[in-house]
Amino acid sequence: MDYYVTILALYIVVAVVACWGLNLQFGEAGVLNFAYILFVAAGAYTTSILTLGHPSPGGLQEYFWGTNLPWPLPWLASAVVGGVLGIGIGAVSLRRLRGDYQAMVLLVISILGTYLVSAKVSLLNGATGLSQIPAPFQGVLHLGIIGYRLFYLGLSVVAALVVFEILRRIQRAPLGRLLRAMRENEAAASAVGHNVVALRLLVMGVGGAIAALAGAIQVQFIGAWAPSSWTYPETFGLFAAVIVGGRGNLGGVALGAFLVQGVFLEGTVLFPNIANPNLVGASQWISLGALILIFLWFRPQGVLPERRRVFGRQPAPGLLDPASIIGPVEGVSV
């Protein structure tokens, strides 16, 4: 039982981190990144090759290059790769294209990534994928299976907390307000002097870095990664979690990730003896679709809606002279 609980807990932490990154893009800034899972994959592959060591000719698996870095360098490097990739893909897809094109092109890019990695075996072992990816400190610590899992869970939670703090700061700062303004009305945001292209690239970068970190955490835990782990419908599962939990609310998104990714998707996989596994798989996706529809209809803001921002009432002295701003306005009674 503990065995399942630790696995499930880790999957949920990974899902929460991934959904937070997606929330920055979709929930806060209104950027619909249908290639999101690609960034999770980029992180997973980066951490894989940075921990697997040099590829040995004639070895079990092929990959273009590799080395062996100590934790947490692979995770950090993954975040950097995810961020750079986000800005790169953002520059290609978001800079010049209209909203509807952006969504479609990102979807195409996601598939393109899967095809490319599957087709070029020498790159990242093709469709078979990479395996035997080492976990950090596993050889050093002698903790037993459950003990090590708990240790690794601890590392992941620390990473998740760092991500949370970064996102909370962005959300509360004037930057977060600009992102929400862009979500509400892009043309109006640029008409008052904000560079919406730069803002979109920013969330592609930061969101991509967070996605990649989620992939890095996951891959060192399960020890394997293949194109089948990141097909594009996976992105929709993450979207579902963000919508159900509550776009724009970090706590809500975490709850959504827990409900959808943890209980709903992974939970049923981990307890396969309920029914015919094939049927479980399909009915799980059907109910996920139904869940999205139900929420969009009955509670489009999610379980925990975005919070209303309230500003304190301490007037700054010397700044409250209305005449200095727009002058006296006759006939406008307060």
């Binding site: 209104g30 619909l32 909203g99 509807d100 969504a103 419908p233 929709f236 979207f239 579902a240 919508i243 049927l279 798989g281 399909a282 009915s283 996706w285 059907i286 996920l288 679709g289 139904a290 999205i292 529809l293 969009l296 209809w297 489009p300």
Partner: peptide, 29 residues
């Protein structure tokens, strides 16, 4: 009905995604 409710352009994409999941896996069943 979703459009009449004023669901945004992107909201409608998500609706059709959900619909795609339902149809596809009903076929599988």
């Amino acid at each position: 009905p979703f459009q009449r409710r004023g669901t945004s352009f992107f909201g409608m994409i998500v609706v059709t995604i959900a619909l795609a999941l339902v149809i596809e896996y009903v076929v599988e069943i």
